[in-house]
Nucleic acid binder design. Sequence first.
DNA 1: TCTGGGGTCCTAGGACCC
DNA 2: TCTGGGGTCCTAGGACCC
Length: 387
Amino acid sequence: MAVRRVIAHLDADAFYATCHELLDPSLRGRPVIVGGSGPRSIVTTASYPARRFGVGSAMPMSRALRLCPGAVVIPPDRELYTTTSRRVWELVGAALLDAGAVYEGEDGPIAHLEQAGIDEAYAELVQIEKPLAFLRGLIADVREQTGIQLSAGISPSRLISKISSDLEKPAAFVVLSREQALERLAGRPLSIVPGIGPKAAETLAQLGFRTLADLTRADPAMLLQTFGESRGSWLAQVADLSVDVPLQPVRRRKSISSEHTFEEDVGPDPATGTGAPAPLREQIEKMAAEVAEAARRRSFRGRNVAVKIRTGDWRTYTRATTLPDYTDDAALITAEAVRLWEQHRPPEPVRLLGVRLGAFEHVERHERAAGDASGDDASPQLRLALE
DNA sequence: TCTGGGGTCCTAGGACCC
DNA sequence: TCTGGGGTCCTAGGACCC
């Protein structure tokens, strides 16, 4: 039988928009949309007043402004979000440590907390005597000290907690056992499950499974047959909400990338008639330099360089190469990226270009030789995914 | 409504070695 | 004359998440 867990999913409400409201209180209560202003930009975050107009994340900005012409549009400010995020999760981590929610890491005890994005995290509260009271106090403290409102879902598993925190936003505080969740979520569409995206939802719908209750009637053998070993057995466990993956308080970044979508597709150079317009190569050089700089800043050295190309018809290619040695050398990384680009540039107009560095030293060493604890940066828990 | 930019994870297949 | 089985490393594509 599985170990008892008390997992909280904590998620900041309209995080980016709230960060801007804290800087400029006159924005409060108004429809705020964070996102770019170019013809191809999309909505990153909408404040709750903007959401009432039907504006949502990942929606083209043009459409968002048609739905809500009075919205205040604010360009994203990554540094602001990173700074605010760090304050929130440091506070949460300190409170967890203080209350005894401790994870024994290789380098000593740390808070039992897994950051799952810039604005969300999972906490294991099983070691805390009165977890709900603790959590209410913590959420109040975070709001008081940072201005950020956290929504919370609390359950025996991260999957149920994650779904729960979304049920009553903003300022949700939803506590469910597995049985209660099964009952409450039975009629909900499968798309509320994180991990079931548009493609899987469509495949399942064609098989006659649209809700969680539908899925409980699915034959596990059929799911395995249709979705393969790994995803099939996962789906079978989703059906009875028994998916249970322990928290991973220490995670290591696996790649650093930079990409850019052009405002208009960039076609072949009219002067030469070949597919080698200077702006494209210059863009590759620029992004390779950014990636190298970001790696150096974090003391990461990688040996896999990749270039990503999306053409006007939305087809996407990646071309990668593995270097003989790990490197953080900007000139070397740039040269490899340019070489890949020159070798593989398509004749079609280009919509997007990207450069990625991966296969980092410490990650590989860690995966290949368990027990080798060197190569870590300080305080890994606070230097997570989206920083 | 024509779809950003930062990531992670999984799968499949080929090359190569024993 | 046609040919195994396992393991590792690598590339490419795609689904998905925030």
